[in-house]
Measured scan of single mutants.
Amino acid sequence: MAAGGDHGSPDSYRSPLASRYASPEMCFVFSDRYKFRTWRQLWLWLAEAEQTLGLPITDEQIQEMKSNLENIDFKMAAEEEKRLRHDVMAHVHTFGHCCPKAAGIIHLGATSCYVGDNTDLIILRNALDLLLPKLARVISRLADFAKERASLPTLGFTHFQPAQLTTVGKRCCLWIQDLCMDLQNLKRVRDDLRFRGVKGTTGTQASFLQLFEGDDHKVEQLDKMVTEKAGFKRAFIITGQTYTRKVDIEVLSVLASLGASVHKICTDIRLLANLKEMEEPFEKQQIGSSAMPYKRNPMRSERCCSLARHLMTLVMDPLQTASVQWFERTLDDSANRRICLAEAFLTADTILNTLQNISEGLVVYPKVIERRIRQELPFMATENIIMAMVKAGGSRQDCHEKIRVLSQQAASVVKQEGGDNDLIERIQVDAYFSPIHSQLDHLLDPSSFTGRASQQVQRFLEEEVYPLLKPYESVMKVKAELCL
């Protein structure tokens, strides 16, 4: 049975990233139509530049190519590739079939990587351009969430054990800070992308030097003109047959890092959902379990974690691919890159769409948070109580021993009897502590235990987050809708 299948058929496997999760716009960027249309555009740009620099290419040939950029006979191309065992030459023939007058000058002087690699770089750039505003929107939604809850005390956790208090907004800023680093890295790697350009079979530009009869300047002009037509500021000066596969490492490393950030955020949300302090959106008709109707599973956060793990592992592909590119190139890269580049971007696209949807509907339960604080705060307040007693004339050592005994009794009630923490009640009825009984409410005010959390939130948002989001103001209103 021949390899390949009808990918629109229910009898043929289709990647869930495309069929179930990723956005239509990201799927289109990695589609065959987008790819092969870009090949034709690159052939047109090459012909236009070659004509401008004096090669015998007519206006009629150029116009014929322009008129057929979208006229792609995919069936013919597939048949040609089956016959020739070469995808680029299959599309040269297919393009030439609908451009008979231009057929002889299509791909003039070029090698397969002229269309293959340059198209990949265009796709990487455009895919990054799709991700950047999506990530900015996630940051914006979380920034709104953090600002609104900047002063809401909550129990902090280290080692997932109760620690000092923080605020809900401050905790959210930990998430935002990681995503801001990801946004900066995505922008950097996007701006650092260079075009492969017009380089020939081993990167020496020998074929173009021959076409222009040894004119170095025209060869350099050709490279520059096509690079500018493709919208790049610069091209690699040095290439082998391909652009260095280190570029793929750079791009997928940034995406993998984004995956790590999203995994951490969504894990926190899942843990908070278990504590009943916070939940992701839950639709009115949504079913959490087929057997347990009360369940409210954090399905979206779980999906993000599941896909983020996949995204983090994909960076190993370009690392290994770059390491086995012998001399000017081997074909070890080809099949692998067809999979890992598309999957990385479709996965990143999915987790950003999902995280935006989550961040637009996060639900906080202040009463649950308050109750958990009441359970733990008495123990945390013991040092403040000791200091207040010393100020009232008591002995630190005597007070410490009193607190120690009462704390152990209260802990026994919590752990052995399943009761509430009654340390404060014990202190309130103990005559030894009568000098500070009137101060206990103040000493137990949760806001006095959150330090500068709310001020940190305000400063972080104003100095770091809002300036970073400013270039994306025009796209901030787009909502994230999930079908599944």
Rank of each mutant, 00 (worst) to 15 (best):
Q458W: 14
A163C: 01
E60D: 03
F28M: 13
E328L: 03
L46D: 01
G231L: 12
E283Y: 01
A348V: 11
G169P: 04
E343R: 05
W175R: 02
L108T: 10
G231E: 12
C98V: 08
Q320W: 09
L461F: 15
V262T: 15
A388V: 04
V138F: 14
C113A: 05
F160M: 01
I424A: 11
H7V: 12
L275S: 10
M476Y: 13
H310Q: 01
G156M: 02
T267I: 13
H437T: 10
L423Q: 03
S306F: 01
D215Q: 08
E60Y: 10
V247E: 02
N185K: 10
E228F: 15
F36C: 09
L222V: 09
R426H: 12
H437S: 11
L209N: 15
S454G: 13
H7D: 08
S323P: 00
R234E: 15
L222H: 01
P435K: 05
E383M: 06
Y34T: 06
E148Y: 05
G169Y: 03
Q285I: 13
L84I: 06
T52K: 07
A235D: 10
Q184N: 13
G169C: 02
E50F: 03
C305Q: 01
K82C: 14
E277L: 01
F95E: 01
A335V: 08
Q325T: 09
K367R: 11
E360K: 03
A3V: 07
A2V: 06
D11C: 15
L311F: 01
S19G: 10
Q408S: 08
E70L: 03
V115Q: 07
A77H: 14
H310W: 09
R303H: 01
P24R: 13
L84C: 02
T158M: 04
P281V: 11
G197A: 12
R396P: 07
H7Q: 12
T267D: 08
P471H: 15
V115M: 12
F95V: 08
P293M: 01
E328R: 01
D333L: 02
V115R: 04
Q408D: 08
V189D: 01
P318G: 12
C27W: 11
L352W: 01
I237D: 05
N384F: 03
A110V: 03
I424G: 12
I373N: 11
R270M: 00
F208M: 12
Y472S: 15
E250H: 02
L69M: 13
T350E: 09
C305T: 14
H310F: 05
A2C: 13
M380Q: 07
M312I: 12
G116F: 07
D349Q: 07
L258S: 06
L341T: 10
R33S: 06
W326A: 05
A273E: 13
I427H: 07
G231Q: 10
D441I: 06
S257L: 14
N118R: 01
A146P: 03
E50N: 07
D422S: 15
Q41S: 12
A342M: 15
R245A: 02
H107C: 13
K284A: 05
R85V: 11
L275Q: 06
A308V: 04
S447K: 11
R452M: 12
L152I: 15
A388Q: 01
A103M: 11
D223L: 05
T242M: 06
S261P: 02
G169E: 06
E343W: 05
L482N: 08
R83N: 12
R303E: 01
L352M: 08
L69A: 04
D215S: 11
L307W: 07
A431V: 07
